[in-house]
Design a protein around this nucleic acid. Structure first.
Lengths: 212, 212
DNA sequence: CACTAACTGTGACATATATCACCATATTTT
DNA sequence: AAAATATGGTGATATATGTCACAGTTAGTG
């Protein structure tokens, strides 16, 4: 087992034995681009480790408004799925695959059990909590203290960085939904950025010239 | 040792041995009403368990704006202080005692060590992360999806509940700072609530009639 | 190729909140 | 008691964002 070493590269800090446990106990689930890993209000019974692809995490309210919180990349775990799974509670969270994605789904009881058995697992879970905590604080900063133009620039930077691409493929309406504003506002702010020569706005995508 | 049993009541789930460890290793620090346990940008070298009193946690930005996030009561721990301490990072967090407060300050290395040695400690730390996570999500909901009038009502309810008192002693300016708005806005919204008979506005305090 | 749906641009207007100016009271200090 | 300070009330106005209406443009489909 563990012949392809893929999992070893994803989680370099895990003990060999833990990697084997994952391989033999985790179910691998595949999601298409645009498919939801977690829907708002759904009961979660396992924790997801991202194997491949890219996932975006949103908070949703009752009226269907959503706000983008952060990305999950290969080698990361969904803190919310741990949180919800362990507490057996639903949470108003949405996780959407933005690329074709594969995850290791770990049953809750193993998440708990491994905490005691594997030091590297417990460190991984804690560091997951820590980093997601930081992301949430950044989200709060943005919506509490920043104007929409600043938040838009942050959005563009972040998405360019994470997809490793100067060109972001997204519609104005999508950006608006994720920043909880309206399409018109996004279009106008994008236009202003374009007028200042910082970006180039095309149909379905935005090219970043210089946002530093 | 552990003769007064105070600590046992605060942390009923901790093993006897862990309680003894806390008693012999934790420094007890007292704070006056209004004093800061953590100032923004400060380096944190220990984790705080609340022994007595009441603490409010704020997020601050560079310009001195602050937003209230949540309360800490006796028997709870500051998740941020764990997070920051372990990572040896500063964080733009403010923790202020709103009543005379006493805390157990636990050196970081013990926080880490006890995680391995005491099951109840590790469960406590995890549940601290979980509950603070939920609080942050609620904060995000409020500022992303709610108008100021709704947020004001939430603020009043929460503060009444946590102080177990229908009358909240606070100035309009204070509320404004914690909700990141202006005093005038708070005064006007309070007036509207008073006109609807839901609260009574006095100088320095607000009496809740019925906000359900 | 025509038709439809999705995406984008833009003016006009509505609304919530922020800011300013100033006054009125209440409380504390001298 | 007088003065200084903290707190609260209110109108006028500014600004950012939200909403509506509608038109133009592109991509995909039959």
């Amino acid at each position: 087992m563990i012949n392809d070493h893929e999992i070893k590269n994803l989680f370099p800090l895990f003990e060999r034995k833990l990697l084997e446990e994952i391989e033999s106990n985790a179910e691998i689930i595949e999601y298409e681009e645009g498919e939801d890993l977690i829907k708002s209000g759904q009961n979660i019974k396992s924790t997801m480790l991202i194997k491949k692809g890219l996932v975006k995490i949103y908070r949703e309210d009752e009226d269907g408004n959503e706000i983008f919180m952060y990305h999950l990349e290969p080698g990361q775990a969904c803190a919310l799925s741990i949180l919800c799974a362990v507490q057996h509670k639903t949470s108003e969270i949405k996780a959407t695959a933005v690329k074709p994605t594969e995850v290791y789904a770990i049953p809750v009881h193993l998440v708990e059990q491994w905490m005691k058995e594997y030091k590297s697992w417990y460190q991984f879970i804690l560091s997951t909590y820590r980093s997601r905590f930081e992301e949430l604080l950044n989200t709060i900063d943005a919506i509490a203290f920043k104007n929409m133009d600043e938040r838009l620039v942050m959005y563009l930077k972040k998405h360019s960085e994470i997809s490793n691409n100067k060109t972001i493929t997204v519609t104005h309406a999508q950006i608006a939904a994720e920043l909880t504003t309206s399409r018109e506002v996004v279009s106008r702010l994008l236009k202003k950025l374009a007028e200042r020569g910082l970006i180039k706005v095309n149909r379905q995508n935005i090219e970043i010239i210089n946002l530093d």
